[in-house]
Simulated assay, not measured.
Amino acid sequence: MTSVLAGPTVGLVKAAAINDAGHTMGRGSLLRYLQIKVHHLIQDHHWDSIRVVGCHDRTATVSRFEKTGKLFNTERPTAEAHGRSLLVKAFPGADYVQHYALIIATYLAMTGRPADTVTYQPPGHEECRRAVHRLELDLDGHLVIVGWGLQHLAPASGVWNRGPGYAWQSATIAGHRVVYLGFLHSIWGDVAGRVVTRLAELGARAVVYVGKVGSLTPGIEPNTSLATGNTSLVGGTLVTWNDFFGDYAAGQSGVRGGLHVSSPSVLLEDRDWLARHTASYAFVDPEIGPMGAAARQAGIPFGYLHVISNNLTGHYPADLSNERHRDVLRRRAVLAARIRTIITGCLAGRPAPLLKGSR
């Protein structure tokens, strides 16, 4: 097999470790966050060079730190050793490849090891498109609910059907046809936008994304409330979409509305970044903006209803480094039930079939 490391280096980017002292997570939480993300071959061994590329390859070495006890989003980048060099294979997406390279470089720097060994090769548009086009579903006017917490949202009696890297379940909710869709791999950043484009091509009439956002507003305790909205700052431009929820979700108790900002990596959200965004924006995550932009381009409604999982403006017991803690899981299960109730209520207020003639 020909080594990818021996191939062309055109487009290679050096992954610069971030200054951990200025990050919003704080040094202790940031290091814990990195330790649960970085492949064990990097934590256990020293390498002369590490390159991150866009390639979904489950035949390479799987990290022993992959998540367990979850239905979806369990897979992390895999790795392949070539002598003293390591090739890290992340699901093809420009944001995800950059994000994981920053994770590795910052982890190495924080553990006293050379970080200038890390590079990444942004995947091309066509390879990103091909990776998402493995998704094949018959969506004849369905609402597709994609993302986090699907085991709490889908009917408990339903059957999960499996495809390559994803699973789905169909149901009828308040007279509307609904598909719950989850992925084994991460649909980080621009990947999530391509998923929406693909779902529209397959016949989806609307997409709802359920996930987690960070708060940019002081005083909001993580895992106690939900976030929604219809506008995101994407690459310096405000993007607004046809909101699936309209005013319904924001009018429910425990739900906060506001402007969202899309960030390609948690590692880039330092205190300087926060200072530039906190006055105007309420939430941050990598996916909402690309998904909303893709839905707008496809001419279908899109909505998000997310758990506020962390707060960048201060330190709380719960953050991105301890999301598997029992109390965090308990609180999020309560919020997931609330999300299910809001989605059902929103559908119940609409005539079936869903959004007939909206495409």
Rank of each mutant, 00 (worst) to 15 (best):
Y304D: 03
I36W: 07
G182Q: 09
S170P: 02
D190P: 03
G235I: 11
R32A: 14
H325F: 12
A131N: 08
D270R: 11
K356P: 05
G93Y: 10
A60F: 10
G26H: 03
A21T: 14
V52G: 05
P8V: 13
P114T: 00
R76M: 14
T2C: 12
A171K: 07
N19L: 12
G251D: 06
L86A: 11
L199V: 01
M1T: 13
L34Q: 07
L226G: 00
S253V: 09
D272T: 05
W273I: 02
A105K: 05
I288C: 08
W148A: 10
V255Q: 04
A90Q: 07
T74P: 06
V144D: 01
V328C: 01
A348C: 00
I220M: 01
C55S: 15
H176M: 08
L34D: 10
D20P: 13
L355S: 02
L355H: 10
R271A: 05
A249Y: 02
G235Y: 02
R359P: 01
H133L: 01
P218Y: 13
T240K: 10
D138R: 14
R27G: 15
E80Q: 15
N223C: 14
V196G: 05
K89F: 01
N242Y: 09
Y107A: 07
D57S: 09
E269H: 08
